[in-house]
Amino acid sequence: MTDPVVVCRGVSRTYQQESVPVHALSQVDFTVYPGEFVSLSGPSGSGKSTLLNIVGGLDRPDEGSVSVDGVDLGELSESKLAELRLHKLGFVFQAYNLIPVLSALENVEFIMQLQGVSPVERAERATAVLDRLGLADMLHRRPGELSGGQQQRVAVARAIVSEPVLLLADEPSANLDSSTTKDLLELLKQLNEEGMTIVTATHDTMVMSYALRQVHLRDGQIEHDDQVQSA
């Protein structure tokens, strides 16, 4: 069996909310293997976003260990953690979070500039990935000139352009209508079929239905973790 992309062991995270401790995660063990499409679901406050943030190196657990692609995140400084996010992870956010003054192409290029990719190469790669996601005619449009679904596709393009080992999506369909959500999910499904490992936190049953593994959290613990037959 191949090495896992994500290994969480005994992960706990407690927040202080107005001096009251809130146990967002308690002793969670969670492993993701290459090529999986995992949905993290559960009611608000169940800990799904916290787990996603910890896996993505955006937050650190109070207890337990997390490794991504064989790298123990607990051993990394903030700057090394940032490097890991930049080079190994792709993020899709609920609110797209594109840079409004850059065109679709430039938004995708921007991340590669940070990675040190040459201007020619990044233009080629960004154009190719946007073309592939059906945005060939929108390369030079700014986010404000794109629909919600198109913006989210640009965000996906930005996330996958560097071929990360893991794509993390936090409520990717929250701002989309059902038709656009379906298009997005078909895209994620296609990426997954090509080998992309995807973990998404969601409330949306449609998103869950596309995942091949459904992890349900409640009160900071995994309530059930089910493999689903591919449609």
Binding site: V71, V117, P119
Partner: peptide
């Protein structure tokens, strides 16, 4: 098995091309 290794990927410092920075 986890390993505390340094990342082999290049650093996140941008290249000498700063055109996008100025445009932005």
């Amino acid at each position: 098995m986890t390993q505390a290794v340094s990342l082999s990927a290049p650093t996140s410092a941008p290249t000498g091309d700063t055109g996008l920075t100025w445009r932005l």
